[in-house]
Design a protein around this nucleic acid. Structure first.
Lengths: 187, 187
DNA sequence: CTTAAACTACCAAACGGTTGGTAGGGAGGT
DNA sequence: ACCTCCCTACCAACCGTTTGGTAGTTTAAG
């Protein structure tokens, strides 16, 4: 039994029940330990949450920056970033759910450590859009708002995506990319 | 003190802390009662949640259908529906937050009462898009997915919208409508 | 013999929920 | 005017359970 096993189990339980509805007892049972034994590996429930949030942020920012660094047309870069983001959510469901839905459960004293790095994600989306604008390929009067729209569509997917659905994450991302790039209007 | 006062207070506390982190004690203090007295007006915490979800659904479906019934071009109908939805979120923040973020806390025995009516909302968006397609005004290979995209953008707004922000709900909805209808690409 | 990791047993606090009771204000009869 | 009855609204006290967390002990491997 390792600390990592506990974090993995916690992520899944936080995803299923939400942070506050999940008990240390639940987590202990999932890793086949007694509740008290958890505290040998972990100092508190809050620490588990913070560790999960940090891990999720690290992984996701790394993936986004990998795409951002490529030399692609704005159109393609946006598309590939959306694919990278969505496939991350699909491959790391529970971790992503915690990042997206449970970060509000961080106690105030930990929040300030987390929010700035969280904002970095939104910033990356904004940069991609602004790059597209300055290339003369995109139009948007409020890139910050457009970034929020992108994040909304993708983050919301965590609430409805099923592994056994008809479409793969890449196909879903492609459809969303078409939608954002071309719009609904027939041209 | 009325049952409605209790529901209003509960909605606000559920919004701030989430359902499971909120205690009946919290709610009682907000309406200046003792915890036990709440049970004179309400039978359980779950019942409060269910009542809030039902109320929110009623109000929001009513608003959406009012716009849907109008005789508008697909373009305008989509835009006005987005405005109606977003302005509802802004005018009923706590109620909307509960509807969007806390419905997972409904116990299984209540869920079946709620989910079907919840799906009605998604259906309305899909109808609007499909109407636009059959009019030859919109294009979309997966209207169901497009509906989820719309819902995602709008629902996600509940997580970042601030009353003192630079843009009004109508302006935000307008920007989102432009984005969905015209796309990012310069034409 | 040491050490990490697991266990048992426990704690104070908080939880959702229930109970029995009471203050106070009408309503209605006389 | 007075008394009785009932009802709404509220409260203090408590129930059993669960919570996050701690302390001390045993186990097992190196």
């Amino acid at each position: 039994m390792s600390r990592n096993d506990i974090l993995r189990a916690a992520a899944q339980i936080f995803q299923e029940k939400g942070y506050h509805a999940a008990s240390m007892q639940d987590i202990a049972e999932a890793v086949e330990l007694k509740k008290g034994s958890l505290y040998h590996h972990v100092t508190s429930k809050q620490e588990i949450l913070l560790a999960l949030l940090d891990e999720a942020l690290d992984l996701i920012i790394e993936r986004l920056q990998a795409v951002e660094a490529k030399d692609l047309s704005p159109n393609l870069k946006l598309r590939q970033t959306m694919q990278a983001y969505l496939s991350f959510l699909a491959e790391n469901r529970s971790l992503s759910s915690v990042l997206i839905l449970e970060h509000k459960s961080l106690k105030p004293e930990f929040i300030d450590l987390h929010i700035p790095r969280r904002d970095r994600i939104e910033q990356i989306w904004r940069e991609i859009i602004e790059e597209g604008i300055s290339c003369g390929e995109f139009q948007s009067r409020e890139p910050a708002l457009t970034a929020k729209a992108l994040l909304g569509v993708l983050n919301w997917a965590i609430t409805w995506y099923r592994e056994d659905g008809a479409l793969s994450p890449d196909e879903i991302a492609d459809h969303f990319a078409d939608l954002f790039i071309q719009g609904l209007l027939i041209r």
